[in-house]
């Protein structure tokens, strides 16, 4: 079984927000709702300054706090590692939103339930990449199977020494090159 993961190279990200728009289109989200948040970091002293943009979405943790706190089992992890929300079971208590250390969850006001990045599982099931990956103009994102040692994502992780965004805060399946 595959264990899906994603890698993001913030050195390549130009902050165009195309991934956010593609995500909103794919998930039919209203303009104010998004599964990708952007954080900006400025470092250094003039003239040696650096400006980094860090897009953050669901990190698809193997020990997902959102899943362990969910009182109705609406939040669950698929066999392929994708963390999902069953909207029929979700009561919208927002406990998962409190528990998620990455602030990756959004309340979908039309249904009152919680939503988040699901690695575009409908596209992935058809063998395609998630919308944020295909739309990225800088090829900053890589999607693939972390269980396959020869997958492109594993090669980039090894080559670039990619890390989780917050160390071992959770067992995330999302890697960053920074």
């Amino acid at each position: 079984m595959a264990r899906y993961g994603m890698l993001l190279d913030t050195g390549k990200c130009v902050g165009c927000y195309a991934c956010r728009v593609a995500c909103q289109m794919q998930n039919e989200l209203p303009p104010g709702e998004s599964y990708i948040k952007f954080y900006e970091n400025e470092t250094g002293v003039f003239p040696n300054v650096n400006h980094e943009i860090v897009p953050v979405q669901c990190q698809h943790c193997e020990d997902a706090p959102c899943v362990s706190v969910c009182p109705t089992t609406a939040s669950y992890i698929r066999e392929d590692g994708i963390v999902m929300v069953d909207h029929f079971k979700c009561i919208g208590c927002k406990y998962c939103m409190e528990a998620c250390p990455y602030d990756a969850r959004e309340i979908h006001h039309a249904t009152g339930t919680i939503d988040k990045c699901v690695f575009c599982q409908s596209l992935v099931e058809q063998g395609e990449d998630p919308a944020c990956v295909t739309t990225c103009i800088a090829d900053a994102r890589v999607f693939g199977d972390l269980d396959d040692p020869n997958s492109h994502i594993n090669q980039v992780i090894a080559e670039q020494n990619a890390q989780h965004i917050a160390g071992d805060l959770t067992k995330s399946n999302f890697y960053y090159v920074r």
């Binding site: 979700c90 009561i91 919208g92 208590c93 927002k94 009152g112 339930t113 919680i114």
Partner: peptide, 9 residues
């Protein structure tokens, strides 16, 4: 009442 999802369903 705070659990919006339960109000819908």
């Amino acid at each position: 009442a705070d659990a919006e999802g339960a109000l819908h369903n």
